[in-house]
Nucleic acid binder design. Structure first.
Lengths: 152, 152
DNA sequence: CCTTATATTTTAGTTCGCTTAACTATTTAG
DNA sequence: CTAAATAGTTAAGCGAACTAAAATATAAGG
């Protein structure tokens, strides 16, 4: 931990960038009338393309009843579409509407607005160095065995 | 935005790292019985060293009444200390207890556990490249004019 | 002193997100 | 065909977190 300066630097950057990003993001979410659960749901649906009610509940760590109720609100806000699964008529398929996608993307943009300010303070050489480094990180992270979901 | 590949890469990394970090962190917070508001409060107090009730409320975007109530819960959990401000006896000084600091640090550790796995996949050369890059980012971010708080 | 402003707490009431339990509909297994 | 499993919804109720308004205490200015 404190013995490895590399990990320490990585942690430091995550700490700094998460602080900046989260503040902007939470501010945006509030303004849009979305709770953290809503956001988490929209992100999951976006990543998966489509998903079921119970599956989403498991992902978020809540019961299927809670998931159903939350999705009902998102349907009313026209952020998601909830249709019958043709393969199994007990199930539902949840997908984002265009509005849902738009809201999510605006949130991401709000979250990352400070990056534009940061970018302006960098020289072309610095940008190049950073870009190479980040591409390594992104690539290695993608190949990390643990596929992100302990899924409880 | 999509025209600048540098910003796009920066955004991509933030997106990936936030997803990983947030999932671990939220899981830890739940297990500790802390809400996102509690976490936000503890972080703010930790960063500032000490703060007042209304000031914290403003930071979190809630009324001083809500702030007072939340702090009462944190006092009961022995995560913070609430003492009279000797300079102005109307006010209170909020500081973290040792337990509060410990809980917060454990949360950060939980949040960043995946970084150890990531680090193992990197060569010494890659680590060096990345470290140089991140140090530039950390340094430039610190000097960013906007001192983080729109404070509404 | 007296008034006004500031800092926090208390009270009452609302809303939100969650749970459990009951219910409907559909699929799967025997 | 029937029984059991699965997917989702609905209803009742609970606790957390918020607000507005009132109460308390202190500070600051004339």
């Amino acid at each position: 931990m404190q013995s490895d300066p590399f990990v320490a630097t990585l942690e430091k950057w995550i700490k700094v960038s998460m602080h900046r990003s989260m503040r902007n993001f939470i501010h945006y979410a509030r303004k849009s009338g979305l709770s953290m659960s809503h956001i988490g749901a929209l992100f999951h649906i976006h990543r998966e393309g489509k998903c079921g009610v119970t599956e989403l509940g498991n992902h978020l760590g809540v019961t299927s009843a809670a998931s159903s109720q939350m999705l009902e609100r998102l349907v009313q806000q026209e952020l998601i579409l909830r249709t019958e699964d043709p393969k199994d008529r007990r199930g539902k398929q949840i997908v984002l509407t265009d509005k849902g996608i738009r809201v999510l993307e605006e949130g991401v943009r709000a979250r990352q607005r400070w990056l534009d300010d940061l970018t302006e303070t960098l020289s072309d050489g610095e940008k190049e160095t950073i870009m190479v480094a980040l591409e390594i990180l992104i690539d290695k992270t993608r190949n990390l065995n643990q596929p992100i979901e302990p899924e409880s």
